[in-house]
Design a protein around this nucleic acid. Structure first.
Lengths: 236, 236
DNA sequence: CAAAGAATGTCAAAAATGCGACATTTCGAA
DNA sequence: TTCGAAATGTCGCATTTTTGACATTCTTTG
C-alpha cells in the first residue's frame, strides 16, 4: 500500500544532473511573478514548457460560479506546459503564482532541440509525467469510491506542501469545495469533523494540517475498511 | 473544452515508423489471449511494458464483492505497464483480454535499452503518456462539475470502442455503477433516461450505443451550457 | 479606528442519491 | 425443454447532500 503522505511526485529537475539543469537555465528565460499573479490561461495554444525555480504555481480551472477548481500546487522543479510541446493540445489549466515565484520558460522548439541532443531530458520528463499521471488517477479514483470525509482528507494530503514548508493551505473553503465537487456547507462540515479529530485546524482562508502523518494514519485506517484500490496508467 | 468524445488518445505505436515497430516485434514476445483471459494482476512488481497488437484489454480493479471497476479499454497500439519500467511503482490494475487478443510483451530492461539506442521510442512514449494524462485530467474535471446524467453519458462515450467494432459495452450495470461510483439503481435510472432519448439501448449484461455521434452531440449541448457560463465568469 | 467587504459557521427545508426488496427477464446448464 | 442462477427494472424509505439564508468572524481599506 503506497504511503500517500510520504509519496512525493519527484519533479522533473530532480531527474537531471547539475550540468543538464545549467544548460536549461542557459536556454530558458527566467521570469519573476508576484504572489497571485496570473501566469497562463486555459486554452492558450502557444507552445512552451515552464519550470518552477522558486515559489509555487497554483494550477486549476475557473468554474462556472467563479470559484477556482484547484488541481494541484506545482513546487520547485515541477514543470507545466509539456502538453503544448509534444502534442497539439492547448493548455489545460489556469495558473497563478502562489507566493513570490520564479519560472523558467523555454520555448517548445527549443526544448525539443534539447531533447533530441540529449535524451536524458526526455527520460526525466517521461518519469515526471508518469508520476504525475499516477497522482491524477489517484485523485480520480478517490472521487469515485471514497466517502466524503476520507475523500476530503485525501485531497488535503495531496495538496499539502512538503515540509519544511508550512503545512498550511492558503485557499478559501468555497474553492476547495469546488475542487472536490461538493458544496461549501458539506466541506465545512467535513473540515469540522477533521478538526474535532485534531487532525487539522480551520483559519480564515486557510487550513492548517496539524500533522500530516497523523492525518495519513487516520486515512489509512478508514480506507482499510472500505478496501483500498489504486488506479494506474490506463485510460485510453 | 476540448471535445473529449471525439478526441482519441493516439496510441504509442502510431508515433513510430514501420521499421521501429518491426524492431519492437523482434525484441518482444508475442502472446495470444483468449477472450476474458487474465493478463496481469494488480500488485505485480516485475517490470515490463506490453503493447496491444490486436484485440483489446480491459483494465480495472476487482473489488471485494467481486465486482469489476472498469477503468478503460486499451485498443491496438496502446501500451500498459510503463509505470513499472520508469518508476518503482507496482502494477495496480487487473487486466483481462476483451475478445481474442494479442499482446507484445517487452521486458523493462530491454525496453530501456531500446529507448537509449533510439530516442524515437521515448518521444513516442512521452507523447502517448501525455495524451493519456490529458484525458485523465479532463475526466477529473468532468467528474467534478458534471451532473449525473451527462457524467454517465461521458463515460459511455469514453468506454465505447471505435467503429468498426460493435458499439456495445459488454458489462453488467452493477459493474458500470461501481466504476462510476453510483448505485445500480441510480445508474439504471440514468440509462433509462438515455434510452428514452433514443441514444442507447439496454440489454442483458450489455449496453448498446445507438449512435455515438448523437450521444456526443447531446453531451456537447449539455456541457455547452456550463461552458458558456464559465467563460462569462472568467471575463468578468 | 471604523466601516465595508469577504469568508466562515450553521441551520432547516428541499432535492438527490443510496439501500433493500422483490418481481421480471434473460441466460445457460442439466 | 425446464429449471435455477444471474441480471435487470422499479418502488418506497432512509440517508446524504445541496440550497439558500443569515449571523458571525476576520481582513482590509479609507
Amino acid at each position: 500500500m503506497t504511503d500517500l503522505a510520504n509519496f512525493r511526485a519527484k519533479p522533473f529537475l530532480e531527474f537531471l544532473s547539475r550540468e543538464q539543469i545549467a544548460t536549461l537555465r542557459d536556454v530558458g528565460h527566467l521570469r519573476q511573478y508576484t504572489s497571485g499573479q496570473f501566469i497562463q490561461s486555459r486554452g492558450d495554444a502557444e507552445s512552451g514548457i515552464a519550470i518552477v525555480e522558486t515559489g509555487a504555481a497554483q494550477a486549476g480551472i475557473y468554474s462556472s460560479d467563479g470559484g477556482f477548481i484547484l488541481t494541484s500546487f506545482l513546487g520547485p522543479g515541477q514543470t507545466f506546459g509539456e502538453f503544448t510541446v509534444f502534442t497539439d493540445l492547448p493548455r489545460t489549466h489556469d495558473l497563478a503564482a502562489s507566493g513570490p515565484t520564479q519560472l523558467l520558460h523555454i520555448s517548445g522548439k527549443r526544448f525539443l532541440q534539447l531533447c533530441e541532443a540529449e535524451p536524458a531530458y526526455l527520460f526525466a520528463l517521461t518519469r515526471a509525467t508518469l508520476l504525475r499521471s499516477y497522482i491524477a488517477l489517484e485523485m480520480l479514483h478517490a472521487v469515485r469510491i471514497l466517502p466524503l470525509l476520507p475523500r476530503v482528507a485525501k485531497y488535503l494530503l495531496i495538496l499539502t506542501p512538503e515540509l519544511p514548508a508550512e503545512p498550511r493551505l492558503k485557499l478559501r473553503q468555497s474553492d476547495l469545495a469546488a475542487t472536490l465537487g461538493l458544496s461549501r456547507a458539506s466541506l465545512n462540515r467535513a473540515l469540522s469533523d477533521l478538526e474535532t479529530l485534531g487532525l487539522i485546524s480551520r483559519g480564515y482562508a486557510s487550513i492548517r494540517i496539524e500533522c500530516k502523518s497523523a492525518l495519513n494514519d487516520w486515512l489509512e485506517a478508514h480506507i482499510g475498511e472500505t478496501e483500498q484500490r489504486w488506479s494506474e496508467q490506463v485510460l485510453s
